[in-house]
Nucleic acid binder design. Structure first.
Lengths: 194, 194
DNA sequence: GGGCACATGTAAGCTGTTACATGATTAA
DNA sequence: TTAATCATGTAACAGCTTACATGTGCCC
């Protein structure tokens, strides 16, 4: 799947739930898909215009002045299924924390531990947000089970991040301790003034 | 940290290991950081030129004609530590598999299961690659322990992906079974011709 | 001599964000 | 009345990939 069609997929998917304005598409993506997807207005409005030109969506006057409601057409439905069936080609990896960690000896273990703690806190916070999201899903709705699976993916990922962070922090504490042992080895064993 | 400095961080980090050519920087990032970072030539060469103009790296003639070896300067070292200490600001989430999963009722549970299987296979393959990477690290080297932590992060993440995929596949099988039950309910219990 | 690894660079293009400009409607 | 929300769009810019152009050195 061409990378460019990912916004198409998100927008067509949103319109498959119900016809709505561009503004509502954005709000829906932020609120409902927020933990694994994002789109900005700068993407959404041009995308809607292009999809309309391609006959994938139909534009109708909205209730308010200057507002338009977009609805999925038949060929838009076909296009949506095409995009859904296409395998997800992974983007090149770019993990800023691991990049910093790899060059950790330059920065020092203590500073690295601080960065890892920040990441751990974020994962804990995400777990709490996911619990809220989970509670808001109605499992009897048609896409309820699918929504629950996306929440579950986030939870697995967050728990793994926490477990790793704990492991990493333990290792980093040891590295700090070793450093202390090395620098204090030649000093008297009794406590000096701080 | 401005997003734009992430390539700077990767390049300066590479040069903190040893002075090398742009080509070697790219190869090093691909081979050593490959499981969590990537850079293309289109980023590396302009970045090196800019870092040289800023006085962060020094360019010297390499052994081959037309080749240059870049080395970290003192101010480059300072810049590297600055970038390393800056917290990693997370990029907006974009998970193509979860996007597809969320709209799974449009595609059907069986097709979704196929997509999840592909993801599971990828995670299994990654785990194998990480085992190789782990074996190649010398833990007595100064950055050995840090490199091991990056491998460990990959392993945690891959194992979580596999566990989630197994859970998801089990749920999807049930959804398929429910669908079959509903569609066969009104047919005779005895086997019809296929 | 042919192919591969080494080596440098640029141009075009795509994806995406941010900030801005503009204005109507509604709830406090 | 005034602030928040609803609503549409664009322009500028940032980041990144791909493909191309170009050439050297080394090994089979």
């Amino acid at each position: 799947m061409a990378r460019g069609s990912r916004t198409d997929l998100a927008v067509l998917g949103a319109l498959s739930i119900a016809p709505m304005t561009g503004y509502a598409v954005r709000a829906g993506i932020q609120d409902v898909l927020g933990h694994f997807w994002s789109e900005s207005y700068g993407q959404i409005y041009p995308t809607l215009a292009r999809l309309e030109a391609d006959g994938c969506v139909e534009r109708r006057a909205g209730e308010r002045p200057r507002s338009s409601v977009y609805a999925l057409t038949d060929s838009g439905g076909v296009r949506l299924r095409e995009l859904l069936a296409a395998p997800d080609e992974p983007t090149p990896p770019r993990n800023g924390l691991l990049l910093r960690l790899f060059f950790g000896h330059v920065l020092g273990a203590e500073e690295v531990a601080r960065l890892v703690s920040v990441q751990r806190d974020r994962a804990v916070a995400q777990l709490a947000e996911l619990a809220v999201a989970r509670a808001e899903i109605d499992p009897s709705e048609e896409h309820g089970p699918f929504a629950l699976l996306t929440v579950s993916a986030g939870e697995h990922s967050a728990r793994a991040a926490i477990a790793w962070a704990d492991e990493a922090l333990a290792v980093l504490v040891e590295i700090v301790a070793d450093g202390d042992r090395l620098t204090t080895r030649h000093r008297p064993a009794s406590a000096d003034a701080p």
